[in-house]
């Protein structure tokens, strides 16, 4: 789809029948591989297929990116997590950042299908990384594209058009923000003065994804109390005002060194091959 983002379609009839927007799957590429969670980008129940969009960020996604049409994955399990809340006709602002747009897109499509008025803001670092513009255009009453460097659409990040609309008196029943943690944190900060509900989609490190290991825990602050929740079964969607983003960002970097080495090794392995 762009130099670092790839879409695959996987034959998985049981998952295709059940998956709803906002849910994820866990896959392994090969026998020794790690389990990684990826969000469902779309399904075709009739054909029994599930679409998954991923960005190459490490060894496992690098290996995934080297599969060819017709290859098989070692494992593919889901759908996991709870689906994004759908309330029928309401005014929703869907905000996607980078590869997070792959998760935001089926949410916007479903909102549109059930009669919600959808405003979409999708942001990318630059024009080269732009994905899913046509898909968003088709399911949005209004679409704003931003790039950090101004090479396409509006110059700047996704929070600026949001702030402008809210300041101008635009009313949303809720905002759904899906993207890098820092983007979601700033969307929450931008929406706060206006009291609009913000749902964010968390994507922490996971292993089993079924409520067993506890690695995906995040901290919510509810009425001044810090409470632990598990993204795999309680999420991945959470009330953005309650999430401790700084902690989530720190926890996401737990294996940063290890991941960089593994990625470099994987890349050199594939270069040789």
């Amino acid at each position: 789809m762009n130099p670092t983002v790839t879409q695959i379609e996987v034959e998985a009839p049981l998952v295709a029948r059940k998956a709803r927007p906002g849910q994820f799957i866990i896959l392994r590429v090969d026998e020794a591989g790690e389990r990684i969670p990826l969000t469902v980008a779309g399904t075709c129940p009739e054909e029994g297929t599930v679409k998954v969009i991923f960005q190459v960020v490490g060894a496992t996604t690098e290996a995934l990116n080297h599969l060819r049409e017709g290859d098989a994955l070692q494992d593919f399990a889901g759908p996991l997590g709870t689906a994004t809340e759908m309330n029928g006709p309401e005014r929703v602002c869907v905000i996607g950042g980078g590869v997070g747009c792959a998760i935001a897109m089926p949410v916007a499509q479903e909102l549109h299908r059930i009669g919600a008025a959808v405003t979409s803001i999708i942001g990318f670092r630059n024009r080269e990384l732009l994905i899913l513009e046509d898909e968003f255009a088709a399911c949005s009453d209004r679409l704003i594209v931003t790039t950090d460097d101004g090479s396409y659409g509006r110059h700047g990040n996704v929070t600026e058009p949001l702030k402008e609309m809210l300041t101008a008196g635009e009313k949303f029943d809720r905002i759904i923000a899906i993207g890098p943690l820092v983007m979601m944190k700033f969307v929450v900060a931008a929406a706060k003065p206006f009291g609009v509900r913000v749902t964010v989609s968390m994507n922490p490190i996971m292993i089993d994804g079924t409520g067993m290991c506890g690695g995906c825990r995040i901290t919510l602050v509810q009425d001044g109390q810090r409470v632990t929740r598990f993204a795999c079964v309680d999420g991945p969607d959470f009330n953005g005002y309650e999430v401790d983003f700084d902690e989530a960002m720190s926890r996401g970097r737990m294996y940063a060194d290890y991941e960089r080495h593994a990625y470099e090794e994987a890349c050199s392995l594939f270069r040789k091959a």
């Binding site: 049981l14 059940k18 494992d75 593919f76 399990a77 889901g78 759908p79 996991l80």
Partner: peptide, 10 residues
């Protein structure tokens, strides 16, 4: 049957 989560897949 591995990779089937009862309560989710079925």
């Amino acid at each position: 049957e591995t990779n089937v989560i009862i309560g989710k897949t079925l």
